[in-house]
């Protein structure tokens, strides 16, 4: 079963009498285990696509199903629950709580779970060691470098074991060396089976993905990634 299914999804914004299409009749399927890069110039609709994939926004028309659940008609609380249970976010500017330690930041998603889980702390520590920060658990964000902060954010994104990890320009605030480290980490997560969608305008970043979707005027066009020539046999072709 596909993880994300978008059917004729449109998103419009109305300013005065003018209706602007951010997404136009998008059909898109993402299967479990994929590593997808969404590229495109600003205003192309890539961020809107990510917001809809991440249940931060709902389509104006069309239908979106995540993990078999139709998100289209959900209210705000239900969307919150979908995010809590199915999605891990990674942002350009990390968005760690400045007054909480790395460990507390990783634990943040557990606070809003409908059903509490045991052993959250030991899982958080495992995740911190997975991203190579086991000795930084009690550091605050301002005591960590940019790359380290983004690793904490990745650990946080994995905390509730989501099916989908969404990364919005995850390396945008980092230098090339650090950025490469972060992308290698995301790749290794993907190799372990995590589904990852990266939104970026950077071809170097997109090159880590096995599938690249280019957005232009709210319409995606598919093309294989340049640098990682992996066959796309596992994935059905997607028509825009």
């Amino acid at each position: 079963m596909s993880l994300c299914v978008l059917e004729k999804v449109s998103k419009t914004y109305t300013t005065g009498d003018l209706v602007v299409y951010a997404l136009r009749q998008v059909d898109l399927t993402i299967d479990p285990g994929e590593f997808v890069a969404v590229m495109g110039p600003s205003g192309s609709g890539k961020t809107t696509l990510m917001n809809i994939l991440g249940c931060l926004d709902v389509p104006s028309s069309g239908r979106y199903a995540l993990a078999g659940k139709d998100v289209t008609a959900m209210d705000d609380d239900e969307l919150s629950r979908m995010r809590s249970e199915h999605i891990g976010f990674i942002f350009q500017s990390f968005h760690l709580l400045p007054y909480a330690t790395a460990l507390e930041n990783v634990l943040l998603p557990t606070l809003y779970l409908e059903r509490p889980v045991d052993g959250g702390k030991s899982r958080a520590l495992e995740l911190l060691s997975l991203v190579g920060l086991e000795d930084r658990a009690h550091f605050r964000p301002n005591q960590l470098s940019g790359g380290q902060q983004q690793r904490v954010a990745i650990a946080r994104a994995l905390m509730n074991d989501p099916e989908l990890v969404l990364a919005d320009e995850p390396t945008g605030a980092l230098d090339t060396t650090t950025a490469a480290g972060i992308m290698r980490l995301l790749s290794s997560l993907n190799e372990r089976g995590k589904t990852i969608v990266v939104v970026t305008h950077d071809p170097e970043v997109a090159a880590y993905a096995r599938r690249v979707i280019r957005m232009r005027d709210g319409v995606p066009t598919e093309q294989p990634s340049g640098r990682t020539p992996r066959p796309l046999t596992a994935h059905p072709p997607v028509t825009p």
């Binding site: 991440g54 931060l56 705000d76 609380d77 919150s80 629950r81 995010r83 809590s84 249970e85 976010f89 942002f91 500017s93 968005h95 760690l96 709580l97 400045p98 943040l108 998603p109 606070l111 809003y112 779970l113 946080r156 509730n160």
Partner: peptide, 16 residues
């Protein structure tokens, strides 16, 4: 607002 945004993104409801 960044803190609020991330809390909402990881599953906090409005009333949380």
């Amino acid at each position: 607002s960044g803190e609020i945004g991330i809390r909402r993104a990881v599953g906090a409801r409005r009333r949380d």
